[in-house]
Amino acid sequence: MPDDVRPASLSEGRFDGRAEFDAILRAALSAAAQHGWKEIVFSDPDFADWPLGERASIEALQAWSASGRRLVLLAQRFDVLERAHARFVPWRRMWDHIIECRATGKAAGAEVPSAIWTPAWFVHRIDPERSRGVSGTDAASRRALREAIDECWRLARPAFPASTLGL
């Protein structure tokens, strides 16, 4: 299935609450693996409340990961992700060659959106504190979200290395 076709299993419209957001993320990871999406962008200030450390999430990411794929992670900081998602960190190390991570830090004007972006579909948590937002395929909304992510990416620096080299 081409990247620009949204699988029917993915939601469209408003969502409200952590349980709904978690279910949407799980469905997105499953769809990515099932349909071989080439690129996925995860964006969040710190990924603290994303279910990335769950066994099912890692299994879906493992099934998705292959040559020619790309996962982009944008955050304000990654320290919470490293501490809170113990299964994700080793998976990230193993697949370093398909993952790009950047952090904005405290860059002025760099409010990192809480979102998932793909060429065909998006999720945007407009109110991350209450896990409220929208998901869908609308091209204008998807483009606006990608522009916001790209602007933060431009201000960000490489972060969350797969390994730390030192003397």
Rank of each mutant, 00 (worst) to 15 (best):
G68W: 02
A63K: 10
A32I: 05
A27T: 11
G133N: 07
R70D: 02
I99K: 00
A23C: 01
I98R: 00
A56V: 15
F47T: 06
S141V: 02
S114F: 02
P2M: 03
R83P: 07
D46R: 01
H97R: 09
A115Q: 04
I24D: 12
H35V: 03
W37C: 02
L155W: 04
L74R: 07
R93K: 14
I126G: 04
E54M: 05
I99Q: 00
F47R: 04
E147V: 06
A140D: 14
V80S: 12
E129Y: 01
R125Q: 12
K38Q: 14
R157G: 01
A48K: 10
S65G: 10
D46Q: 08
L73S: 07
R83F: 09
S67N: 09
A86M: 13
P51N: 07
L10I: 03
L10H: 10
R83C: 08
L73C: 10
P45G: 02
A48Q: 10
Q76N: 11
P119A: 06
S9N: 12
A115V: 04
D4C: 07
L81P: 04
E20N: 11
A120Q: 12
M1D: 13
D44N: 12
F47H: 11
G136R: 01
S57G: 12
F160R: 04
R132K: 15
I116F: 07
E151C: 03
I116K: 02
S11T: 11
D46K: 01
T137V: 13
I149F: 05
P51M: 06
W121P: 04
L167W: 08
Q76M: 09
V89H: 03
S57W: 05
Q34I: 01
A23E: 14
D44I: 03
L167F: 08
A31M: 13
S30M: 07
A8G: 13
A23H: 09
R146F: 11
P119R: 02
F78E: 14
S114K: 00
A56Y: 14
A63R: 12
R6T: 15
W37G: 05
R125V: 01
P158H: 07
W50R: 14
P51A: 04
R83A: 13
A115T: 03
S141T: 02
V134N: 12
A156F: 09
R143K: 08
D138P: 00
A139M: 07
R157P: 00
A66D: 10
Q62W: 10
L25H: 05
A148I: 00
D4W: 10
F88S: 06
L25V: 15
L155K: 14
E151I: 05
S135A: 15
L29H: 05
I99V: 15
T137Q: 06
A86F: 10
P2V: 02
K106V: 06
E39T: 08
E54V: 01
A107M: 08
R157A: 11
A66W: 00
E20A: 13
I58T: 09
D49H: 08
C101Y: 02
D46L: 01
E111G: 05
E129V: 11
F88T: 05
A139P: 05
D96I: 02
P119S: 10
V123H: 04
A107H: 03
M1P: 10
A159Y: 04
A139H: 09
E39S: 09
R125I: 00
W153T: 03
A110R: 02
G105H: 11
A144M: 14
A144T: 06
